[in-house]
Design a protein around this nucleic acid. Structure first.
Lengths: 210, 210, 210, 210
DNA sequence: AATGAATGAGTTTTCATTCAT
DNA sequence: AATGAATGAAAACTCATTCAT
């Protein structure tokens, strides 16, 4: 391994270290109440160093979201081309993927929402915005392929193939955010996953040909 | 009308004037980039005056959200007790209610989301938090009553009566937020309502007994 | 009584009402944390009305202090010319006068201190400043006369007749402020008066010819 | 000297720089009319920098007072254990210590008074409050030791040993504040020290066994 | 490459005071 | 005379970002 490659790898390593710290702090505090100083402290680095790896707070947060999207996409790619199960089974595996992410860190999807607010999108550089579009699009097309498979198998209704993926995604995110806020308001704890389960079941049922 | 009543009405009027100005500014800038000074300017008042009517920025924003929730609830109450239509028809009227709100100001529902994030809920006074809980609960119980009606009519599946209202609300909100962000990302403008329509259709279908 | 006199009396009445309210609020909050609105509320008047009777917050506070000085002076005048007791006995009556004021409202003397800070004196109108000087001077000359009497009776040392009154006053005020702050710091409650007693005893002893 | 030690020293240096600037501004304007911006300007720093070293305005002011108390205590410690002079001589050295502080900056003792008002004590962090209590207590115990020495030498009256230190301190502070305000009121300048001298003499005389 | 002290623009918030009614 | 809603200047404080070392 050449010296250049080692440097490159170290650089990548440092990025991950910062992003992991940022994930923790954003999870605990939310975007606006998280401070760069606290993220730096968590990463055991100085504030200035973060700016060597990320243009600003906004892009650090977005990079994090892209990362999660990439993880989700990678997980989904593991099963979307399997031949031994049908589209409905794959829909349940999609659900499990989301579930895993939620279990890993319940806030990550809420943070994805922050990203989606128009307030944020405007502050991103074209470069990062393109990367975001690309990653989003990959994640969605994985879902779309499952939906289309279901349609071609005659399991799912064929009316709105394009919208299916969006709706699955949106439903999932909406439910996560909603039940999480209810949990906060009511101090009820373990019902997020049950609700997600039910919501998903209903949604899949809605897609089905009767 | 006594002098006291007139004063009271003027006071109420001034609150509305501020809230209307705040709605515009929050819509255009989002919560954190909106400034109290700009809201004051929009309302043609001085910054100090706003603090005579709202304790702080957070509570002004929350009052706005409560207002929208109240409006939604009021709209729904107009038809939930009608005898001449069935639960499925009422589900479509629910959809129309959300649609109207979105058309009035696409940001208002996104603002509702801002409110629901745990980040925000912690800064509210107990008083406003109670009002919020109360209003949320009213809106949800209106939806619940439609869901229950559908179940007792044998139209909707009876498995998860409690969760239905939450899921309807969450799905709707999630879809609004999602498509709105897509609109921003892709500069596609008019597909929000179509997507909402489809999402709703699928969801209702999912509730149905097969 | 003519209409003019009645008006005059009502005006005087209203001034007293405001000053009594102000005394309570200044006592509870201190000068800078007391607000005109709270004083108005306590007086069951509106903020604007206070400004019909007092030029500003500073002068309201000073008027209060002048009032207390006048009360102290009036009390002292009751005994300084008595023939049946000597100067040392009169010194003890001076102490009782201070004690009474402290018992009536422990904060009034601390508020007198606020007045004495250079920070405040500069904001007063010449008129009020003159009144303050006049009243202070009367209070001091009462004390001075006791000190001089003691000197001419051969009881007190004659070295510094002019300074005696100042020192008595200053000692008294300093001790009040000091013990009051100690009370706050240590949560000890009932030692203020004992300490005052001792301080006074020592001071009088210091004046005495040996 | 290691790099860490140098940094530490620079930091300490910066604190002193800010405190010196604050002392000047508080002296000239008093606590409430002094602004952080002006202090920053005086220190040739930006406002934000001050907040790196002091939590808020209140604590900056208190730190200043603690500093003065520490200085006073240090001065007193230089002579309280000397064997070659008696307690009365030490009382005069105590006086000189106060005198020096007053000559250095007449406002510093008045600032100590600001600190002692209950109004202020409530805004301090527990940490700073503890430091203040500690430092006050040290200063007082230095005085107490002189008083006790005088009692055991049969020079001072033994009746109230505990209160002696408080009374000495309170008397001194009261006189400083009082004469200073007189100076302001009457534009008489140089009589503060004379008055202090006399006050002290009388007080010491009051302590003496006759 | 990493630091972290310093920046300073930007915001929220307060409250004595005014003035139209 | 009294009101009290409105003012708006002023101030404390925050924190993303920079840059000399």
């Amino acid at each position: 391994m050449g010296i250049h490659e080692r440097k490159q790898r170290e650089k990548e390593q440092r990025r991950k270290q910062i992003m992991e710290a940022a994930r923790k702090v954003f999870s605990a505090k939310g975007f606006s109440r998280a401070t760069m100083e606290e993220i730096a402290g968590q990463a055991e680095l100085s504030p200035g160093t973060i700016y060597l790896y990320f243009k600003n707070k906004e892009e650090l947060h977005t990079s994090l979201s892209i990362n999660i999207l990439e993880y989700i996409t990678a997980q989904m790619k593991k099963f979307i081309n399997r031949d031994d199960i049908d589209a409905e089974a794959k829909m349940h595996l999609l659900k499990d993927t989301f579930m895993n992410v939620y279990e890993y860190d319940p806030m990550v999807l809420i943070n994805l929402f922050h990203l989606q607010s128009g307030e944020t999108l405007q502050n991103l550089s074209d470069e990062v915005l393109d990367e975001l579009k690309q990653t989003s699009s990959e994640a969605l097309s994985a879902i779309t392929s499952v939906a289309n498979e279901g349609i071609s198998q005659g399991i799912f209704v064929a009316k709105h193939p394009v919208a299916l993926a969006d709706i699955i995604w949106a439903t999932y995110s909406g439910v996560v955010l909603w039940v999480d806020s209810k949990r906060l308001l009511n101090n009820e704890k373990d019902f997020v996953k049950q609700t997600l389960d039910i919501a998903f079941e209903i949604m899949v049922n809605g897609f089905k040909v009767k």
